[in-house]
């Protein structure tokens, strides 16, 4: 079956690219779609993100993991223009992206989803989908008033949206308000809507959070599908089973910096990663000063978390 060979070849080529790659943070990739240099973001005294160098391989599924408060979502926000970095530069397809506003980042083919799903509640599922399409003639004020200008394009968009809805098994809900969907269905809708943009790089912020187990497999399948269609995926996740299952490469963040990279099979046995998750010298008894500094770190992380929560 052609589909199958495609699947294996995409996955194989992605894996082949990562073969024998050093497990060092910031390791260069043969064909990077996204290159990040020295991105810093501070909130008051707290440095939330301080990434020296990181590259994302084109056509791969890369996972971004790390303990709570590691700065993963903040890093996502910097890259996608939702928050302004204090310093640093990054390129997408060789084009500089620092300081570019969020909507232009998306237009360039770098589309994200959110940790807390942002379904547009009082729009129907189909309208949610249509919104994702780019370069719509009917989105300009003057042309909007005369349907003849945009009818044809709208029909094409609707057709594409319906194909995607079928693929994501949401076609039965097309006329329902998005607000009436379940949590998992909203995640699916958000992903499908992101695909309407026709992105090259899809950035998923915790795609599995709050999804019931029955839907997990189907969501995983969809993420793998993105790679098979030639897209690059970068996702933040806590669930290590999922990371091991679908990712080709894993980047680990802790306290705002990238501390390790490696293939999913071995990354969790990396000393630095274990330290990050469990604390340094987790088997040795702690001295008073160490205890204090750990407490401070935990506090800072918690504060960042709270801030993140309250701003939602």
């Amino acid at each position: 079956m052609p589909d199958d060979t495609m699947t294996t070849s995409r996955k194989a080529s992605a894996l082949a690219a990562f073969k024998d790659m050093p497990r060092e943070p910031g390791v260069p990739k043969p064909d990077p779609i996204l290159v990040v240099d020295k991105v810093v973001r501070r909130f008051g005294g707290l440095t939330a993100v301080d990434v020296d160098h990181v590259e994302i391989q084109r056509g791969s599924i890369t996972a971004l993991i790390g303990p709570n408060g590691a700065g993963k979502t903040t890093f996502f926000n910097q890259l996608t223009g939702f928050d302004t970095a204090d310093a640093g530069a990054w390129t997408f397809n060789g084009r500089a992206m620092n300081g570019v506003p969020a909507h232009k980042v998306a237009r360039n083919g770098m589309v994200r989803t959110f940790q807390l799903t942002k379904a547009l509640s009082r729009l129907t599922v189909l309208e949610n989908m249509r919104l994702g399409a780019q370069k719509q003639k009917g989105e300009s004020f003057w042309r909007a008033m005369i349907p003849a200008f945009w009818r044809g394009q709208e029909d094409e968009i609707t057709e594409r949206a319906e194909e995607l809805l079928v693929r994501f098994k949401l076609d039965a809900k097309r006329e329902d308000f998005a607000g009436s969907l379940s949590g998992g269905q909203r995640k699916l809708l958000e992903m499908a809507r992101a695909l309407m943009v026709e992105p090259e790089l899809v950035m998923l912020d915790e795609p599995m959070a709050g999804v019931n187990p029955a839907l997990t497999q189907s969501l995983l399948g969809h993420v793998k599908d993105l790679r098979e269609q030639g897209m690059t995926v970068l996702f933040v996740e806590h669930d290590m089973d999922m990371v091991r299952d679908i990712s080709d490469w894993v980047i680990v963040m802790a306290q705002g910096t990238v501390i390790a990279e490696g293939p999913p099979s071995t990354i969790m046995s990396d000393e630095r990663v274990i330290d990050a998750y469990l604390g340094a010298h987790h088997d040795a008894p702690l001295s008073d000063t160490e205890l204090e500094s750990q407490l401070h770190e935990a506090e800072a992380a918690l504060e960042a978390e709270i801030e993140e929560e309250t701003q939602k």
Partner: peptide, 12 residues
């Protein structure tokens, strides 16, 4: 926009 002594917001 965050005021003279206010904190900046975060998104996401």
């Amino acid at each position: 926009p965050q005021g003279i002594l206010g904190r900046r917001e975060r998104i996401g």
